[in-house]
Simulated assay, not measured.
Amino acid sequence: MEECMNRKPIYIVMSAVLATTLSLPLAANESEARDMAEERADRTAGQVVDDLSIAARTKAALAADEVTDAINIDVEVDRDSVQLNGFVDSEAERERAETIAMNIDGVTEVVNNLEIQPADRSAGEYLDDKLLVSKVKAALVDNPEVEALTIDVEADHGVISLGGHVDTDEERDAAMAAANQVAGVVDVIDNIEVRS
């Protein structure tokens, strides 16, 4: 029994390393794969877990708040920096979401990308926006230059907001181009941050 308990930390570390390795997109050549791995090497498994914890606690705090509509606010975290993406109904809601995020333990910075869009969508418009989000996500997945899982997509009245974190300017540009090419997209707001 004691031997099994001593192995648990090893399994956790091995799982984290395997998950990181599997999350690397397929590279055109070995050199490109090595470069991508080196870019991500500075983010330890512990940092990834910390970021996920901050994101979960921020989402929970937004959901518990009476002013903010957590369903329309996406939370992305990279190295303790919180990025708020999506659409809100008022400046008061936008400011309240930022205050909540800033008060989460471990947060060092909040980038508030929330766009103010009055909530006057009909049920049909809401469904159209959800369909548009699915189409944009599919376009990002289909683009080999984009790591789609790191990019958040929100929509309101055909306006797409892209947020999250990518490794290069080229990846951000490719994501923007892919979103702009989707039929039905009125405009694309670039809230994607390039990791330094």
Rank of each mutant, 00 (worst) to 15 (best):
V182T: 01
A178C: 12
T168I: 10
G163Y: 15
V166H: 09
V153G: 03
L162Y: 00
A177C: 02
R172Y: 00
V182P: 02
E171M: 08
V159L: 08
D173E: 05
A179L: 15
V185F: 05
A174F: 04
D167C: 07
Q181C: 02
E171K: 13
E170S: 08
H165T: 10
I189G: 00
E170D: 11
D167F: 14
A175R: 09
A179M: 08
E154P: 01
G184P: 03
R172T: 00
Q181N: 13
A183P: 10
D169T: 13
D152A: 13
H165P: 01
A155G: 10
D156W: 13
A177L: 12
I189H: 09
I192Q: 05
D156L: 14
M176C: 05
A179Y: 12
H157Q: 14
M176P: 00
I189Q: 12
H157N: 15
E171H: 01
V185R: 05
D190K: 04
G164E: 04
M176L: 14
V186P: 12
N180Y: 02
D167I: 11
A183L: 10
V159I: 06
V159K: 15
V166K: 10
D190G: 02
E170I: 09
G184M: 01
N191S: 07
V182E: 02
G164K: 01
M176N: 11
V188T: 05
D187W: 11
V159A: 14
D169G: 11
N180L: 04
A178P: 02
V166T: 02
D190M: 09
D152V: 14
I160K: 06
G158W: 09
M176W: 11
N180Q: 12
N191A: 04
V153K: 11
A178G: 05
D187Q: 11
G164T: 06
V153S: 02
V185H: 02
E171W: 04
D173V: 09
N191V: 01
D152K: 15
I192R: 06
G163P: 06
H157T: 10
N191T: 03
H165R: 12
H165E: 05
I189C: 08
D152P: 03
A174L: 06
D156R: 15
Q181W: 10
E154L: 13
G158N: 03
V166M: 05
E154N: 14
D169V: 13
V186I: 08
V166I: 08
V159P: 00
T168K: 14
G184W: 00
D190W: 12
A175T: 05
I192H: 05
G158H: 00
E171D: 09
N180P: 04
D169F: 04
D190T: 03
V182C: 06
A183Y: 01
D169L: 12
G164L: 06
A155H: 09
I160H: 00
D167A: 09
G184F: 03
D190C: 10
G163F: 15
I160D: 04
A155D: 13
I192V: 11
A179R: 08
N191P: 00
G184K: 04
H165L: 11
D173S: 11
R172K: 08
S161L: 11
A177D: 11
E154T: 09
A183N: 12
H157V: 01
T168G: 02
I192D: 02
R172D: 03
L162G: 02
D167R: 15
E170T: 11
I160C: 07
